[in-house]
Amino acid sequence: MGRIGEKLDIDFVVSTGDNIYDDGLKNVTDPAFVQSFTDIYTAKSLQKSWYSVLGNHDYRGDALAQLSPLLRKIDRRWICLRSFILQAGIADMFFIDTTPFVESYFTETDHSYDWRGVSPRQAYVSTLLKELEEALRSSNATWKFVVGHHAIRSVGHHGDTLELVKYLDPLLKAYGVDMYMNGHDHCLEHISSADSAIEYLTSGAGSKAWRGDVKESSDQDIVRFVYDGQGFMSAQVNPTHAHLVFYDVSANILHQWTMLKPQHSAI
């Protein structure tokens, strides 16, 4: 990852959640932050801002600790918020807190979750969707990317997140979002929408992988690529096209494609 970051001269890094595995942080002084982040991503090319969302495993610990600005005093790269917008020139990136969408997390007994700042769930999710819709409506960016932890479309172990299919996906299609990027499933995936220009990209292969669990597509969406192993992705964007690449853990190219603007089919 460091070698690719240097080759591409990257501007920033995006983390799609489950930042501190397996159960988040215990508090803002938990050494797991340094052990899982600072001590891992040491390459010179990765000393850029890291924009992160929370995953379900992060919510199993002290979620507020990961959101705390105190962590930036430990590592200045760390930028983690529940939901926010990154205006990156020609692209607007909308980071969405997807864990509270999943109803089962609020009833399961195997794990406990830190819902401070989230409960009541229905009000939180409703407000998030309204704010996202307004932000998408007012965006004049050439490219619109949405980033969340859970997949909308996936043929990996967890599969589609039904709550996102019902509530989030229609907004993305209505407001011309180009890509939805997520983690959660520990693999790399590229799925094209059957009824819109959205590309669904899973990049959740930074740690636990090789599950050997790939499902059939649940509808007519086109599964262009699946890799059930460790890896990461890069995106290079300009006013006319976006070039995206999936790599394995050794930085070998596994899959790449180009999206064109104005709307054309991917090549």
Rank of each mutant, 00 (worst) to 15 (best):
F145C: 05
N238Y: 04
H186C: 10
D110V: 13
G176D: 13
V165H: 07
K48Q: 02
F84V: 09
H57F: 09
D228R: 08
G206P: 05
T99G: 07
V177N: 04
F232A: 05
P262M: 04
A194E: 06
D110Q: 15
W115K: 03
I96V: 12
P31A: 03
E216W: 11
K208E: 11
L8T: 03
R72L: 04
L86T: 00
A91P: 06
A135L: 01
D92H: 06
K130P: 10
T99P: 15
I20C: 01
G176W: 04
L70S: 11
D219R: 08
K144F: 02
C80E: 11
N140T: 09
N140Y: 04
K173G: 12
V53D: 00
D22W: 08
V147R: 02
L70G: 04
S265G: 02
A91Q: 03
V249Y: 01
L64Y: 00
D248R: 11
C187A: 06
D9Y: 07
Y247E: 08
S154R: 08
A91M: 06
W78H: 09
R76W: 05
R121V: 00
V13E: 06
A174N: 13
I253T: 08
S250E: 04
K130C: 13
H264T: 05
L81C: 10
F101H: 00
A151N: 15
Q47T: 06
A135P: 01
D18S: 13
D30F: 12
P262A: 02
S126W: 00
V249H: 01
H186L: 14
V155P: 04
D18G: 09
K166Y: 08
A205I: 07
A197H: 10
S52Y: 05
I198C: 15
A235V: 13
A135K: 03
Y175I: 12
F225R: 02
Q47W: 00
G117R: 00
W257G: 14
D185H: 04
D39H: 13
I10S: 01
H255N: 10
Q47Y: 12
D248E: 08
D39K: 15
T109R: 06
A194F: 09
E131Q: 09
L172N: 04
V214L: 10
D92S: 11
D160A: 14
S265M: 02
I152P: 14
T29N: 14
D110R: 15
F145K: 06
D92L: 03
I198H: 13
H190C: 12
Q47C: 05
L132D: 00
R3M: 06
D22E: 10
G117A: 01
A43S: 13
